[in-house]
């Protein structure tokens, strides 16, 4: 038996919005510790990894390991039927784990919607992601990162991210011209969520596809801050932390032909 009741049901709605563009089908791996999902996009350029810890649910029950194969587009359609303030409960039985039950309770508990989502067998390989000491770690407002990606898309399909002592610079060059945005590290005691924090081991310069970064910024509503981790010749990590877990996006760097 698997049962997970999420008081902040709106979080699940936002989470689905943040992965559905990148991944079509994925397994939700449910265990005692929580719900995890790892999937690559169709072109195997990006990887999404998300975790919702069991402590974030009330109650959470998972007797044994479950792998629930879900078409994310279908799940997203059903989750659109839940109100933003609804409590969402997910359930799957031992015997008939061929469907996932979802119930949506409104805050007054006088309207309850119940839905069943058919599950599917998904043969997905699970990659192990090693702990990495990154050359540069940047914590910045997520809305600012989204704006930079959106603005530079006007100029080019790719962006070069340069990190040096106290500056992160995003540069795009295209047929119509070029553009760059520099952010200096700042600290705001009153509003720490608005500051730009740069931790640097050594200077980094890497180029990435803006199309994928734009997709990653679908995670913006999940957190006021985004964490960017970069190392030379390594995938970029873009992370949005939530109270009950995280969503991490990995993107392989563009490399010279």
């Amino acid at each position: 038996m698997f049962e997970a009741r999420l008081i902040q049901g709106g979080l699940l709605k936002k989470l689905l919005e943040s992965v559905k563009e990148l991944v079509t089908d994925a397994n939700f791996d449910c265990s005692e510790s929580g719900i995890a999902l790892q999937a690559m996009d169709n072109s195997h350029v990006a990887l999404v990894s998300l975790l919702l810890r069991s402590e974030g649910f009330d109650p959470y029950r998972c007797d044994r390991g479950f792998s629930l194969g879900v078409n994310l587009n279908s799940l997203n359609k059903i989750l659109k039927c839940a109100g933003n303030d609804d409590i969402i409960t997910l359930r799957a039985d031992d015997n008939s784990a061929d469907s996932l039950s979802l119930s949506f309770e409104n805050p007054n508990n006088d309207r309850i919607g119940e839905y069943e989502l058919k599950l599917m067998d998904i043969d997905q390989e699970h990659l192990s992601i090693p702990e990495t000491d990154y050359d540069a770690t940047i914590i910045m407002p997520s809305a600012e990162f989204q704006r930079i990606c959106r603005d530079l898309t006007v100029v080019s399909e790719s962006v070069t991210i340069d990190v040096s002592k106290d500056t992160i610079k995003f540069t795009a060059e295209g047929e119509l011209g070029s553009g760059n945005i520099k952010l200096k590290s700042t600290s705001s005691i009153d509003k720490p969520e608005e500051s730009v924090n740069i931790e640097l081991g050594q200077d980094v310069s890497l180029q990435f596809s803006l199309k994928y970064l734009m997709n990653f910024t679908k995670g913006t509503p999940l957190s006021e801050q985004v964490i960017l981790c970069l190392s030379e010749k390594m995938p970029l990590l873009v992370e949005y932390k939530m109270d009950i877990g995280y969503i991490r996006y990995y993107l392989a760097p563009k490399i010279g032909d």
């Binding site: 990659l127 390594m234 990995y250 392989a252 760097p253």
Partner: peptide, 14 residues
């Protein structure tokens, strides 16, 4: 010319 590298070559298969 640039091309986008594959992500799965950076991570280990179990």
């Amino acid at each position: 010319l640039y091309y986008q590298d594959a992500i799965d070559k950076y991570f280990e298969r179990p």
